[in-house]
Amino acid sequence: MTASTMNVDPSAIAMSNADAVGTGRVKIHSKDVKVFYGAKQALKGIYLDIFEHSVTALIGPSGCGKSTYLRCLNRMNDTIDICRVEGLIELDGEDIYGRTIDTVQLRARVGMVFQKPNPFPKSIYDNIAYGPRIHGIGARRDEMDVIVEKSLQRAGLWDEVRDRLKEPGTGLSGGQQQRLCIARAIAVSPEVILMDEPCSALDPIATAHIEELIDELRENYTIVIVTHNMQQAARVSQRTAFFHLGDMVEVNDTEEIFTNPKDERTQGYITGRYG
């Protein structure tokens, strides 16, 4: 059991990555990713591949580094002064921390949905149009109308808000706000969507809505989702990675992880012994 020892052999992980029944090609490749907040190390060298057009769930107890890892993928950690990232993360074979990469363009390709719905204090329409506008898409009014409608349709919100696009986005219910945020992320047509516990502030019905939506979005996007809810991980994801204390302990097909975990820490977590 190499993976259960504290000194994880990178090649063993890499191998287990390769072993997994990945569908499609590798979209994001990360190698020995380490993150420090000041002197404190939050990630201790993560090796993880994320496949195109699939949903990858990151699970693990609080403070295990899964959100930190997620925020590395679109360089959101850059906004935190004391945060330092080491290692290699490639998007389509291109180092996203490389010199030629601009965070603005990167984040247009790798969108993000946050834990708490965070619509801007603007109208529903402007919330969606915001992303395309800053990236210079949809300059003509009719083009923008199409983008807004399509994004809202994909996020399953169109029918509920089509008559009140001018009303403020903050006036929607929590679940609607979160779908608005997903529509907002979709509107810039990203390749990858990162979701950081997108349902943790929502009730079960709204959660079911979002989960359905994630499943539909998989066709067009690569999705990485952080969740505390193991049923959710089991329901929506094809692959699951288990994080613990800054390590990526195990990654495999979701079914494998939940029925036949290789590492006893994974087993302990998914059976509810800790976490």
Binding site: P119, F120, P121, I134, C181
Partner: peptide
Amino acid sequence: VPQSLRDGAYGLGATKSETIRQVILPA
């Protein structure tokens, strides 16, 4: 102004000044 609004704008690829002008100041 909540950090989540800044994150939302940065997450869409807004630059710092865009975030400030279009999200933070209106809020």
